[in-house]
Design a protein around this nucleic acid. Sequence first.
DNA 1: TCGCTAATGCAAATGTGTTTGCAATAATAT
DNA 2: ATATTATTGCAAACACATTTGCATTAGCGA
Lengths: 152, 152
Amino acid sequence: MGSFTVNTIAKLLAIRSRKNYTRKKEVQTLRRNTTQRMAIEQVFKEQERPLGVEEVHAFGRKIVKSLNQATVYRNLKILVHDGWLKRITHPLLGTLYERTGKDHHHHFHCRTCNRAFELPGCVLKENEIAPTGFVVEDHEIYLFGVCPSCGA
Amino acid sequence: MGSFTVNTIAKLLAIRSRKNYTRKKEVQTLRRNTTQRMAIEQVFKEQERPLGVEEVHAFGRKIVKSLNQATVYRNLKILVHDGWLKRITHPLLGTLYERTGKDHHHHFHCRTCNRAFELPGCVLKENEIAPTGFVVEDHEIYLFGVCPSCGA
DNA sequence: TCGCTAATGCAAATGTGTTTGCAATAATAT
DNA sequence: ATATTATTGCAAACACATTTGCATTAGCGA
């Protein structure tokens, strides 16, 4: 063990005493701000819509040209683990990642450009659609059609 | 070539002249009513809810104990091809199959028994949820909660 | 700047759902 | 009942997304 400050040691002790901590596990708890992860975060900030792994990889490469797909996977997992991203399964596009902290919203899929968008707001009244006996706790809505840029 | 009746020959000619016809392709066009496929159809008739491959296999085995998983896959493809089944991708359960010919409906997922259900009817007004510029052609709604039998 | 080690790039390995080659079986028309 | 061939069971092969082992690189604390 090297020479850490008291602060760092306290941080490490706190981290390593967490119940699920395993040193070799994929998702580490002591982060380093790598250019790769910062690039990935930037991609989500710029795009403002749910992205698939391949999209993140492609956009990220424009920032860090050496960005590897395995690194994308590793960082997406980290960002989900840290609560910065949320993982969703789109009926047509499969696994997508979107930023957390947004209000309840739904997803639009453009059949022309094959991209996913977030639509704010919700008009669904859960109690109006569920027959007696079904207790509805949550819901997801997927809309399909043509987005503004493709429809023009 | 055997001795077919004029009717059968005409049928075959019609089938084989279809543009996409390839003899060795998985999905044949001249069906035989096998006990396996009839069992699979019966499973869907009895369950009346979307089923995954493994569910179909498990239920089907109770009718035809030798039923193989590959046969399930082959017949699900055939039944979709024939328009008897529809294939959907559930956000949590993955690929499911449901009978066609039903009115517009949505899907309920019970978090307790992990089964999918169909809920008839729809209260969503597509034009109320889409911002200007988005043209909505279709939608899917997934509800999550507890089903009647699990909630009791 | 130095030392430690988390993170990366690369390729190989993994996992899970689905397909397929083949010999044997069974559905259908006659 | 017979001939034909679609269908089956089985195991191997496949596709695809995701992961991991390892040597190297680079972030961070001091």
